[in-house]
C-alpha cells in the first residue's frame, strides 16, 4: 500500500466514524440515565431529512444542522412522553420510534430524493493538511468532525468530572435512591433523552449535509443500531466510544482498503462488514460475564415513583 492510500483511508475512517461518534455519545448519556432508547435510527433519519430540506430551501448549512438537532429533539420528546409519562416499555417504544422515523422521513423526503446541494466542505490548512499519513485525517476534515471531537471532550468531562454528571450516573444506577435524596429523576432522564435526540439529529444531518451529501430513503443504513452496539462495546465509557466509532468507521470503508490492495470482492458482500463487526464485538463482550456489570444498573427499567 502506498502512502497516499493510507492517508486517504485514515481520513475516510475518521469521516465515516464521525456520525457514529455523535449518535453514540448521545446514546451514552441517555443510557447513563438508565434509559435505553432504541429509536436512534429513526431520529437520525429525521435529522438527515429535515437538515437536508432546510438547507436546500434556505441555502444555509448552519440552519440545516440546527433544524436537524431540533427534529431529533422533537422525536426524542415523543419517546420521553410515552416511556416516562405513560411508563410504556422502552424497548417497544424505541422500536416504534425507529419505524415511525423511517416512515416519516421517507414521507416528507419523497420530493427531495437525489436533489443536489453543496455539502459541508473539508477545511484546508496550508502545510498541516499536506502532512503525509495524518495530515488529512487530523487537519483536513470538515468543521463537524472537529465539533464531534469537542462534543466528545465535553461528554467525557461531563461524565467523569462534573457534578451534574454524577447526578446523571446516580439516576441511572439507582433511581429510587436518587429520588429519595431529592434528585429530580424525571428531569434528569428527560434531559438525557433530549440530548440523545439532539445528537442523533445532528448525526443524521452529517450524513445528508456533509458525508454524502444528498437525501435518500433509509440513508443511515443501520448506523443508529450500530451506535447502540458501540455503547456496549465501549462498556459505557466515553473514551472507548471514540475508539469504537473510528474502528467501525474503518470497518465501513474496508472496501477502499481491499480495492487498494487489488482484491476484487462484491461490494454487497463488503457492505456486510460493519454489521458482522458489530455482531463479533457483541459476542466478545457479552460472553465475558464481567462486562455486563458495567452497564447502568437500572438501564431499560421504567421508574414509577411519581406522584
Amino acid at each position: 500500500m502506498d502512502i497516499d492510500l493510507i492517508t486517504n483511508i485514515l481520513y475516510a475512517m475518521v469521516r465515516t466514524g464521525t456520525p457514529l461518534l455523535i449518535v453514540a455519545l448521545g446514546e451514552l448519556i441517555c443510557e447513563k440515565s438508565g434509559v435505553l432508547n432504541l429509536g436512534q435510527e429513526g431520529m437520525m433519519l429525521m435529522g438527515a431529512v429535515v437538515g437536508f430540506i432546510v438547507t436546500l430551501s434556505t441555502g444555509s448549512l448552519t440552519l440545516g444542522f440546527l433544524a436537524a438537532i431540533l427534529a431529533g429533539i422533537l422525536m426524542s420528546l415523543i419517546f420521553g412522553v410515552i416511556t416516562m409519562e405513560l411508563s410504556a416499555n422502552q424497548v417497544a417504544t424505541g422500536l416504534a420510534l425507529t419505524i415511525f422515523g423511517t416512515g416519516l422521513s421517507a414521507f416528507i423526503g419523497t420530493n427531495y430524493v437525489g436533489k443536489p446541494i453543496t455539502g459541508l466542505e473539508p477545511i484546508d490548512i496550508p502545510v498541516l493538511t499536506d502532512l503525509p499519513i495524518i495530515g488529512r485525517m487530523l487537519f483536513g476534515q470538515d468543521l463537524l468532525v472537529y465539533l464531534s471531537l469537542a462534543l466528545f471532550g465535553g461528554v467525557y468531562w461531563f461524565i467523569n468530572h462534573s457534578r451534574p454528571g454524577l447526578i446523571l450516573k446516580a439516576v441511572g444506577e439507582n433511581p429510587h435512591s436518587a429520588n429519595a435524596i431529592g434528585l429530580p429523576v424525571f428531569k434528569v432522564r428527560y434531559l438525557a433523552i433530549l440530548f440523545g435526540g439532539a445528537m442523533a439529529g445532528l448525526a443524521g444531518s452529517y450524513l445528508s449535509l456533509a458525508y454524502t451529501p444528498l437525501w435518500m430513503e433509509n440513508m443511515s443504513a443501520g448506523r443508529g443500531w450500530i451506535a447502540l452496539a458501540l455503547v456496549v462495546f465501549a462498556s459505557w465509557k466515553a473514551e472507548r466510544v471514540l475508539l469504537g466509532a473510528w474502528l467501525f468507521g474503518l470497518a465501513s470503508i474496508l472496501h477502499l482498503v481491499f480495492q487498494g490492495m487489488g482484491f476484487s470482492v462484491s461490494p454487497n458482500l463488503l457492505a456486510t462488514l460493519p454489521y458482522l463487526a458489530t455482531i463479533a464485538v457483541l459476542v466478545i463482550l457479552s460472553s465475558n460475564q464481567n462486562s455486563r456489570l458495567v452497564a447502568p444498573i437500572s438501564l431499560g427499567k421504567p421508574f414509577y415513583a411519581k406522584t
Binding site: 410515552i82 420510534l97 419505524i99 415511525f100 422515523g101 423511517t102
Partner: peptide, 9 residues
C-alpha cells in the same frame, strides 16, 4: 410505513 409507526406509537 408512516401509518405503521403511528399505529405502534
Amino acid at each position: 410505513s408512516l401509518f405503521q409507526g403511528l399505529l405502534l406509537f
